[in-house]
């Protein structure tokens, strides 16, 4: 990520400690993760210890220090989804993509994540793929959905 982009984000949010969370969010929105050089730059510009910036970046679940896949598959783990079998969907994705929850496939195509409730409980169990909600999901249908995405990417996997 270009540091000038980080500068622009800092300008927009205000160069002060109170803006740290907002700045990191905007950086992640642009880069899809928090690149190390961006964190170091924010620390320098805001005159905050790197330790504090790093603490923020690891405390909040929204942040990722590693690049994520082209397709981010987020399984909602809210209670309503849980009682309708959400844990099985995570396991299914882990099997299908050969990656642990929280991880990204080596080819940077897929990331499997869990989120603690997105407030769409009536649709549970729910999987969100790149922001699109897929409600009342089953393990079988999930496999088919993922297969479809793989195929769309050329089917080389």
């Amino acid at each position: 990520m270009e540091l000038s982009r980080v500068d622009a984000i800092i300008e927009r949010n205000g160069s002060r400690g109170a803006s740290l969370l907002a700045i990191l969010q905007d950086v992640q929105d642009e880069a899809n993760y928090l690149p190390r050089e961006a964190l170091e730059h924010v620390s320098k510009r805001l005159e905050l210890p790197l330790a504090r910036v790093y603490a923020m970046a690891t405390f909040f679940q929204a942040f990722h220090l590693e690049p994520r896949g082209k397709y981010v598959c987020t399984v909602c783990m809210g209670t309503a989804c849980h009682v309708r079998g959400a844990a099985r969907l995570v396991e299914q994705l882990e099997r299908d993509l050969e990656v642990k929850s929280g991880g990204t496939t080596k080819d940077l195509q897929f990331t499997v994540e869990e989120v603690n409730c997105v407030g769409a409980c009536a649709l549970g169990p729910l999987v969100i793929i790149n922001g699109e909600y897929h409600g009342t999901m089953t393990a079988d249908r999930l496999t088919k959905t993922v297969e479809g995405l793989k195929k769309a990417e050329g089917g080389t996997r």
């Binding site: 210890p49 790197l50 330790a51 504090r52 790093y54 603490a55 690891t58 405390f59």
Partner: peptide, 9 residues
Amino acid sequence: ANALTFRKR
């Protein structure tokens, strides 16, 4: 020196 911090939660 601010060399240390908690990480994660």
